[in-house]
Computed example of a mutant assay.
Amino acid sequence: MMDKLKCLLYIAKLSYKTNATYKQSNLFGIIVNSFWLIIQMYILVAFIKHGISSYTVQQGVGYVILTEALLTITGLSGSLGGIDIDDLIKTGNIIFYLTNPIGLIGYLIGMEVGRVLYYLLWRFLPLLLIGVVALTWYPNVTPMMLLYFVYSIIIGLVIANEIQFIIVMLAIKNRTSMGVVDLIMAIELFFSGGLLPLNIFPEWLYRISLHLPFSSQIYLPISIILGTEGSILKLLILETFWALALWLVSYFVYDKERKKVYVQGG
C-alpha cells in the first residue's frame, strides 16, 4: 500500500512539473480568463440592474470571479490529468496503464492531483487576486463556509472526472470519444452555472439543474461563498450521493470495458 501511495505521489509531482514547464502558456491563459471575467461581469451586472437576477451587484461580481477561477481547475467535464486516453486507445498503449501496479485509475488520480495543484496555485489564486484587487470584491466568509466550499470543490472535481472517465471507457468500443465529450461539455457548461447562475433560469429549470450532478462543479461552491442558497448541507449531501453513484457506474463500466480493449498497432 505504501509503495502504491509513493508511486501515486511521484506521478502527481511529475504532472505538476510538466504543467509548470509551460509558464508562458499559463500567463496567456490568465490574460484570456481576465478578459472573459470582465465581459461576463458586465453582462451579469446588466441582468441584475434590469431585475433579471436576484443577486446584488456585489454578488454578481463575486459570481463571475469565482466562475472563471473554478473553470481553470474543474475543466467542467474533467481533465483526467491531461492524459489523451483516445490516443492511448488508438495506439494500444492503454494496455500499459491497465496492467501497471497502480492501474489506470491510480495513474489518472496521480496525474489529476498534480494538474489541479498547479492550476490552483498559478491560475485559480491569481484570478481570485485579480478579481479582489481590480474589481474590489471582498467576500465575507466564515471558517465553516470555507470548509464547505473546499469540500464542494473536491467532490465537484471527482464528479467531473467520473463523468469524463465513463465517457472515455464507453468510447473504447468505438475507439474514440470525440464529439461525445464536446456535447457533454456543452451540457455541463449550461447546467453547472458556468454561463449564468442557475437561479436566473425559470423556476422549474432552476430546480432541475440544481439537483443534477453538474451544479456541483460551479454553482454550488459559489453559492456557498455568496450565501445565496439556503439548503447548502442538503445540496452537499446530494453532491456526495452523485459522486458515489457515478463511482459505482464508472467502476462497472471500467471493469467491463477493459476486458474488451481493442488494440490498434503495437
Rank of each mutant, 00 (worst) to 15 (best):
I172A: 12
A245M: 12
Y219M: 00
A243G: 10
L236Y: 07
L220F: 03
V249H: 12
V181S: 15
G193I: 03
S209M: 04
S177W: 15
S215T: 04
P213H: 04
F191N: 01
L246W: 11
L170Q: 08
S250Y: 04
I218V: 06
T176A: 10
L220N: 00
T240A: 14
A186M: 14
I200M: 11
Y219L: 01
L236A: 03
A171L: 09
G194H: 06
E188M: 15
S216N: 03
L210V: 01
Y219R: 01
F252E: 06
P213K: 00
H211K: 10
F214V: 00
A171P: 12
S209R: 01
I208L: 15
E239K: 11
L220I: 03
A245E: 11
P213E: 02
F201L: 12
A171R: 11
S177R: 09
W247E: 03
R175L: 14
K173W: 13
R175S: 14
W247L: 12
F201S: 01
F241P: 00
S231I: 07
S215W: 05
V249W: 15
M178G: 09
L198K: 04
L210P: 02
A245C: 12
N199H: 06
G227S: 04
Y206L: 02
L238W: 06
Y251F: 15
A171C: 13
I172N: 08
S215D: 00
S209G: 05
G227N: 03
L195I: 10
W242P: 02
P197N: 06
T240H: 10
L226M: 06
I232S: 09
I222M: 05
E203K: 08
L220W: 01
Y251M: 14
L236P: 09
T240S: 14
L246N: 07
L233M: 11
L236C: 08
L244H: 04
A245Y: 13
G227E: 01
L238F: 10
N174A: 13
L236M: 15
L198Y: 03
L196A: 09
L236Q: 10
P202F: 11
I208Y: 05
L170P: 07
W204L: 07
M185L: 15
I184C: 14
R175P: 08
S250R: 03
Q217V: 04
T240M: 13
E229G: 00
E229K: 07
L212I: 04
S177Y: 13
W247Q: 04
L195C: 04
L210D: 00
